[in-house]
Design a protein around this nucleic acid. Structure first.
Lengths: 191, 191
DNA sequence: CGCGACGTTGATTTGCCTCAACGATTGTGG
DNA sequence: CCACAATCGTTGAGGCAAATCAACGTCGCG
């Protein structure tokens, strides 16, 4: 899959042999819309690269879903918490569309870390990106009002607004569907 | 400094020679209370290990400080955003007490990454920890009320409540000092 | 000692939630 | 292919937690 090869090249430069070796370790999986790649209580054994489609991760607290993030084709995602500690996950990973993923097992990754040290660097870069992303989300939550967060999302991540149902967006923004609906109404009336 | 040696050993196992080599690259600095290790607009060239004391990082938006996190002796901290990109920082790092830091420059760290590959692993582990910490803070912000966040802080990080002035705690919790004062009053009365 | 920083308290406002009802759209089984 | 159910989004009324604005007491420090 050429797209993945190019994506990897943005992080580390692998020879064709190294890339092929890496690629052989991956398991490709096609998943229908609304299916789960991970459930609460399971141990997260894989990292996922999205070849096509779209996922979200969320947690359930007191019967309520809280969407943490959305990911689209070209992104890596894993429940780091469970993946690193190999303890039961607290989150769900769910497809929002028909999705094709490349799965990289923890075992394989650790094998790569030692066999091809460049992958240790890859792991670091991924973790650093994840951290910056998490902090950015923190900032929007603490600095912006619900309406501002929604405008920010439209501007920064139009794909989300286009491809994700509204109640998941509300959940991601930390508000309830009625509130998002009212915000949209207000914006449509130019305030 | 033995404490740092032990701390490093929790992440990677270095020989005494490797550790000594590493330690030689550090610059030790003593800083008074309320001084800044980094200012907005500066490029963050170092990571800081706290040998003694306590810092916070914060951003200023529309004249208002927003405290992101507190760190105590035994922790590493750097503005990853600026440190990684070498772009001007958006944050301040400020001591809350008389503080002693070991400074590790980006240049040295990158040198270590290649010279002692174990450090690449160290870098990855630090980034992973940072990510998990950021996500945990996200969770408390989205799932808990202000009062619950304060109780959570008392329980999870008593040092913060003991050593940090109240208005910085309010800023960290995402509320205003009058609100925190009322929360404390309520808690003191009701049980 | 006097000033500024910090914390408290009261009155009022506001942004988002809750509960509830309802319309529109999607999906499904007969 | 239609009928009905379920899901999703909208809207209204009322409530509440935290913000805002403002005043005041207290403490630490120069």
């Amino acid at each position: 899959m050429a797209a993945l090869k190019e994506r990897m090249a943005q992080f580390i430069s692998l020879t064709s042999e190294e890339y092929d070796y890496f690629y052989q370790q991956l398991t490709i999986k096609k998943v229908k819309k609304k299916e789960k790649l991970l459930q609460e209580g399971e141990i997260c054994t894989h990292a996922f690269y999205l070849l096509e489609g779209c996922i979200r991760y969320y947690t359930v607290v007191e019967g309520e879903e809280h969407t943490g993030q959305f990911f689209f084709e070209g992104s890596w995602y894993s429940d780091y918490d469970s993946f690193l500690s190999q303890m039961p996950s607290k989150q769900y990973i769910e497809t929002l569309e028909k999705t094709k993923v490349a799965m990289l097992s923890k075992k394989t990754l650790e094998h790569l870390y030692t066999k091809i040290p460049k992958f240790e660097r890859f792991g670091r870069l991924m973790a650093e990106r994840a951290y910056l992303g998490a902090r950015k989300k923190n900032e929007t939550l603490t600095l912006l009002s619900a309406e501002e967060r929604y405008l920010h999302l439209i501007q920064q991540r139009p794909k989300v607004v286009e491809r994700v149902p509204q109640h998941y967006i509300a959940s991601y923004l930390g508000i309830k569907p009625p509130s998002l609906s009212r915000i949209r109404k207000r914006l449509a009336q130019n305030r």
